[in-house]
Design a protein around this nucleic acid. Structure first.
Length: 481
DNA sequence: CCAACTTTGCG
DNA sequence: GCAAAGTTG
């Protein structure tokens, strides 16, 4: 057996349990060095947004602490992965580098460069499937386009997939010490001058341990009512696992197996668990779309949308970003996003629909804002969902689905608790008016302390007009060619 | 006549 | 998903 150590290159699986590369290295009997490379330079990498940078810093801290408990450390470096890992391999005379796959075109190209650079210096590479239930290359089909419709895609995955049982955390690691590491602070991931991360810190706990705890609690308390309550932003009815999944603090296999086991134990929860797993399916579907369309964040999947008459309106975009559109459910969501780095899924759809349909602003502007502000900003789910709302995507919402922000608010935040929490200037309005303050009588506004147009804006566009204008704009797509 | 409910078109 | 048109009692 070779005495040369193995480098485990941590990419987007920042955990110790169910980590195939780490587990295999630990079991090999060789000594191990764990390394993370902050690479925003290699071609094909989409630079992280502000909120995901913040999350990454917290996640690395948690990972480092978990490794220290095993007597190992985390060697953090920055720069192009091929160069950095080549240098590290030389320094510690590594015999091999192991890593978990990131099943995307850009990250796979980076990995191919790493493999080539290591090969040049006689260092072996080994890659392990990890971040998806099914390799997207397997489902590409003969047309080479990959799956386009969610339901048949997910049925196929359900029929075909039996993900391997999650691996345990290695009991011990014979580690190599001495390689120099950057401090996490040196990566510049966290805000300094204006510290905007206060709300993020009080909302989230990053790391593998917190991720496992969330899953356990969700399956214990909330999954039973998940199918019925998941659309309500006023209660905590969802798992809130998405930012943990983003950097692989928990694996899709772990979620799958834990949820499936819970369904067997408690048949009354089976419906909620199926629904929950189908949300994991949407993540999977979006990543497959990304794999087959690497420019998903910039190019319409339906080319006919290239002719769409988007409006350039920086003032309206800014009002939307700041939660000043005059539609309470939308403003609540946009402010929740700014404060916590997250937004309830239902509200994301309504807010996105308002930007794209009522304001006719290019979905890419909204996608980029979410990319910068969401702690769960995912390279697949974020652009795929924006294209879904805009109607330019695969299996997209039909063009005529224009959410009415008042009805959506009344339906899903019926007593207004969500709006009251995030739009405090409306807190004293009764439930019947809180989603449409402009419909209140002057006396009712005065009693609630609301000065429409001063303490809270009037609607940025009247719903009826916005809806009609959106339908007309979408109609122009069909007649223009 | 309306209110409550169901159906249909939206390009 | 919504709103207008149609149906019922």
């Amino acid at each position: 057996m070779s005495s040369n150590p193995i480098i485990v290159w941590f990419r987007e699986s920042l955990r110790l349990s169910d980590h195939p590369a780490l587990y295999t290295a630990a079991m090999s009997g060789s000594r191990v060095t764990c390394s993370f490379v902050y690479d925003q330079e290699s071609p094909g990498i989409r630079p992280l947004g502000g909120a995901t940078q913040w999350w990454l810093a917290q996640s690395l801290r948690a990972l480092r602490a978990e490794l220290e408990a095993l007597g190992a450390d985390l060697v953090i470096r920055r720069g192009p992965a091929a160069k950095v890992l080549g240098e590290l391999a030389r320094e510690i005379k590594a015999g091999a580098v192991y890593w978990n796959d990131v099943a995307q075109a850009g990250p796979r190209a980076v990995a191919a460069d790493v493999e080539a650079a290591l090969g040049d210096i006689g260092v072996a590479s080994r890659v392990f499937a990890d971040d998806l239930l099914v390799d997207p290359a397997e489902l590409r089909g003969k047309d080479g386009r990959g799956p386009r419709v969610f339901t048949p895609f997910w049925k196929r995955v359900l029929a075909l997939v039996d993900p391997p049982k999650p691996l345990p955390t290695p009991a011990r690691l014979a580690c190599v010490t001495g390689a120099s590491s950057l401090a996490i602070e040196a990566l510049g991931l966290e805000p300094t001058k204006p510290d905007w991360a206060g709300g993020l810190r009080t909302t989230w706990q990053a790391g593998e341990r917190a991720a496992q705890q969330r899953l356990t609690r969700f399956l214990e308390f909330a999954v039973h009512g998940y199918a019925g309550d998941r659309d309500r932003p006023d209660i905590e009815a969802t798992s809130r696992l998405s930012p943990h999944l983003r950097f692989g603090e928990i694996s899709p296999r772990q979620i799958w197996h834990t949820a499936r086991f819970a369904a067997e134990e408690r048949p009354a929860c089976a419906r909620g668990i199926d629904k929950f797993l189908s949300e994991l399916g949407w993540r999977e579907f979006s990543r497959h779309l990304l794999y087959n369309n690497p420019d998903l964040a910039t190019r319409n999947l339906q080319p006919s949308f290239d002719a769409f008459p988007w409006t350039k309106d920086d003032a309206a975009l800014a009002a939307w970003q700041r939660g000043q559109t005059g539609y309470p459910i939308v403003d609540a969501g946009m402010r929740e996003l700014w404060h916590t780095g997250s937004m309830h899924n239902r509200v994301r759809m309504v807010a996105a629909s308002l930007l794209v349909k009522h304001l006719l602003i290019d979905w890419r502007a909204g996608e980029q804002w979410f990319w910068d502000t969401l702690v769960d900003a995912d390279p697949g789910s974020n652009p795929a969902s924006w294209q879904w709302v805009a109607g330019s995507g695969a299996d997209a919402a039909p063009y005529f689905r224009v959410f009415n922000p008042v009805l959506q608010g009344e339906k899903f935040d019926a007593n207004g608790a969500y709006v009251r929490r995030w739009v405090p200037e409306l807190a004293r309005l009764p439930a019947g008016l809180i989603h449409q303050p402009w419909a209140a009588k002057p006396l009712e506004l005065a009693e609630a302390g609301v000065a429409l147009g001063r303490s809270y804006p009037s609607p940025i566009v009247e719903h009826k007009h916005g809806r009609a204008r959106a339908l007309a704009a979408y109609a122009s797509l069909r007649t223009s060619d």
